[in-house]
Design a protein around this nucleic acid. Structure first.
Lengths: 132, 132
DNA sequence: CATCTATATCCATCTATTTCGATATATAAG
DNA sequence: CTTATATATCGAAATAGATGGATATAGATG
């Protein structure tokens, strides 16, 4: 049992009163997160990390137009070539965009699936939290 | 006109041939991102940054149970108090959770709206990209 | 007012990420 | 084989983020 766990039971006992119920509550709270797969959480976090950059959001927005090559994207986002390439690799590794090699060009497009829906939902969430 | 812009027109000219059409294409690509509001992109990125951490994803998962105080959340995620508090403030500032002061307790709950839907969509996206 | 306790903030350290020039790789073409 | 060009990768500096112990704040209670 970790130090935090020991402290946890103390805290819960103070909060609830009955030490037995307290330990029960600690166990219930713990079980909620212990069920979660760490690797799965990490790969979900990776997707959000990929989305957590204004330049990469710009790239995704550009790709709503359809497939573009790296060089066109570089123009669209107005960044140096190496930066653009780096951002593209992060989006690709996270599974948000797909790459297709075509001669000396790398052509990128949005991954099938939920990418656009996520972007739309975040817009909704943001607007709601600005109002509230 | 920035260095990148100048280089951009050169690149597009090589890509397309006709310099006039090239400049036109550069302008069209640029217009797609210039329309985007930098501040808006930044606040969307902030939401994604807040989601981009396994511990914070755990917290959101815990809060699907309903309102919890900081001390219960600390137990659930098994982290020191200062870390937990820090993560909570990031989620709060991003508008993903709401805080309610109740005596010496701070009680947190999921913000109304799209939080859960976003988490669900990311799960779908992740599963799709694992298959593909 | 003194004490207890839940939470927030401070601070220093560590680690991860961004940035972009320079360089490498790879494809096309002469 | 040489040159040109699209893209990726490297490397080093700058910035941002996480972590957790120590301390401050603030409400509750005696």
């Amino acid at each position: 049992m970790s130090d935090i766990s020991r402290e946890a039971v103390d805290r819960m006992t103070r909060l609830i009163g009955d030490p037995e119920k307290a330990e029960c509550k600690v166990n219930r709270l713990r079980s909620l997160t212990i069920e979660l797969d760490e690797a799965e959480l990490e790969s979900e976090a990776e997707i959000f990390r990929a989305l957590a950059d204004p330049c990469r959001l710009k790239i995704l927005s550009l790709l709503r137009e359809g497939e573009l090559c790296a060089c066109e994207i570089m123009v669209g986002v107005d960044r140096p070539q190496s930066s653009t390439s780096h951002h593209l690799s992060i989006l690709r590794d996270a599974g948000l965009i797909k790459e297709r090699k075509d001669g000396r060009w790398s052509r990128y497009r949005l991954a099938e699936g939920a990418v656009i829906e996520i972007l739309n939902l975040v817009k909704i969430l943001k607007d709601a939290s600005v109002e509230g």
